[in-house]
């Protein structure tokens, strides 16, 4: 794939990963039911003292949706796009010219993986856990569970996108890529 195709593929893959999250957190889907209940279960600790003083939890969920979840999704999508492009740029400019040389960049791929996870976690932590408007709504145990999901999900995104956006010459820098492509 040429560079333009790979840049476009990155956007498509991000959409594929972000759209389900956006739909789940914004619409009532047939198989998931009321999305507000889902948000409440996932992000709000029913025993939180801060929630005790909220008159209308429903309205608070709508605010959380628009002021935390949506913004976090947009920022994460943007950061994923940015980091993926940085990976494309980085891997394309290594000027590898020998068979076997690309493998040496596996460790750099891992660094990018860690970076993408950390950045996603930090964004989520800030918007869902730390932001003063919603501070204390979420318990640490909930954030821990959410954190595991975030790490798995963003790792899956990065791995699958790496398979498609890494140039053929650098593909052996992506673990197990040779088995899948």
């Amino acid at each position: 794939m040429n560079i333009i195709s790979r840049l476009i593929s990155t956007i498509i893959i991000i959409f594929i990963f972000i759209i389900p999250i956006f739909l789940i957190t914004n619409f009532d889907l047939p198989f998931l039911g009321d999305h507000r209940i889902l948000i409440s279960n996932l992000f709000f600790d029913t025993e939180s003292q801060y929630l005790q003083y909220i008159d209308d939890v429903g309205l608070e969920i709508d605010d959380f949706k628009s002021e935390a979840i949506r913004i976090a999704i947009y920022i994460i999508a943007g950061l994923w796009l940015l980091l993926s492009y940085v990976w494309i740029f980085y891997s394309d400019t290594r000027k590898v010219f020998r068979p076997g040389e690309a493998k040496k960049y596996k460790s750099f791929w891992v660094i990018f993986l860690v970076l993408i996870n950390v950045i996603t976690l930090v964004v989520c932590w800030y918007f869902f856990f730390q932001q003063s408007r919603f501070n204390g709504y979420m318990s640490q145990a909930q954030f821990f569970q959410l954190g595991i999901f975030i790490v798995l999900y963003s790792s899956l995104y990065y791995y699958l996108s790496s398979l498609f956006i890494t140039s053929s010459a650098m593909r052996t820098a992506v673990p197990f890529a040779e088995k899948l492509r």
Partner: peptide, 12 residues
């Protein structure tokens, strides 16, 4: 082109 262009060409 340089050697890396040749390598990338062969891979593509």
């Amino acid at each position: 082109t340089d050697l890396s262009n040749i390598f990338y060409d062969l891979n593509d």
